[in-house]
Amino acid sequence: MALLEIRNLSVDFATHSGQFRAVDGVDVTVDEGDLLAIVGESGSGKSVSMLALMGLLPWTATVTADKLEFDGQDLRTISARARRRIVGKDISMIFQEPMSSLNPAFTIGWQIKESLRKHTDMTRSQRQDRAVELMRQVGIPAPEKRLQAYPHQLSGGMSQRAMIAMALANKPKLLIADEPTTALDVTIQAQILELLTGLQQETGMALVLITHDMGVVAETVQRVQVQYAGQRVELQEVGGLFQNPHHPYTAALLAALPERATEKRLPTIPGVVPGQFDRPAGCLFSPRCSFADARCIAQRPSPAGPELGRALCHYPLIDGQPTGKESAA
C-alpha cells in the first residue's frame, strides 16, 4: 500500500480579482522508502500541493481532493488535533530559506527538543541524548556545543543541517524537502543533497524533493513528477525522463538547458506560464507548445498510460515525435 496517496487535489486561492487555481487536479503517490522529485517552474503548484497536505495553507485557500490519504488515514476528514499529531511526527518538511525557518529567539537545541517534547514522552536527559545524536547524524561538528547556539551564529549550510535534524527528530515516514538547496552555494548544495539521500537510505523514510533544478533531479532521485501551471504533466523514472520525455513541456524544458545545447542559440519555450487572467481553455501548455493543434487549444487532455509517463497530452511524444496525430486528423 502506498504511504501517501493524493488523487485529484485542487487548491484555489481567493484573491481580490477572483479565484485563482494554484493546483489543478494533481495526483501524487509516494510509497514507503520512495525517492520522488516534484519539478516545476514558479507557479507550477509544486510547493502548494505539499503545503495543502500538511494543512499549512492560509485561510484564503480552498482545498479539494478525491483522496488524501497518509498511512491509511484520511487527511480530509481528520480533526485539526489528529492532523497535528501526524504533521511534525510522521510527515515533516524542510524549507528553502534555512535562516528564516529557524526561530531566531531560541537555541538550536531548544528547537530540536521542542518537537521531541510535543510528540514523545522522553525524559529531559533522553531528549538531550537524542538531540546530540541527531546533530551528529546530520554531520554537525561538536554537537553538544552547537546545541547551545542561536540560529544567527550558524552559516546557511549549518542552519539547513539543523533544520534537517529537527525534521528527523521523530523518525518521520515521509520527509518533504521544499527547494532545500536553492539558497545555498553549489559546494554546500552537494553536501546537503548527499546528506539527504544518505539519510533516506539509512532510515528508510520516503523523501519528496521539490525543486526547479534539473541537475539536482538527475543526480538525486528515482522518480520524477513534472508539474506545469498547477497540473501534473508527466511522471517517469528519472532515466526515462531525461532520455525520452513524453510530454512536450518536459522535452522543451530539457532542451532549454544550456548544458544540453548543441549550438550557441538556445532552444526556448516561447511565452510565459499562464497566470490568473490568461488560462487557456484546452491544454494549459498549448499556447507555448510547438506541436499544438486545434484539438489542444479546445480540449483538455487526459493523462496517458504509465508506459507513456502518464503524460497529460493529446499527442504524447516518443523519441521527440508526437504520436496519435493521424488518428485524430
Binding site: H16, S17, P274, G275, D278, P287, R288, S290, A292, D293
Partner: peptide
C-alpha cells in the same frame, strides 16, 4: 497550426489585463 504559436510572447495583450 495556430497564430498564437507564432506570436506567443505576449498572451496578456489578447486576454484580460491584470487590474
Amino acid at each position: 497550426m495556430t497564430d498564437s504559436a507564432s506570436h506567443p510572447a505576449s498572451p496578456a495583450s489578447t486576454q484580460k489585463a491584470p487590474p
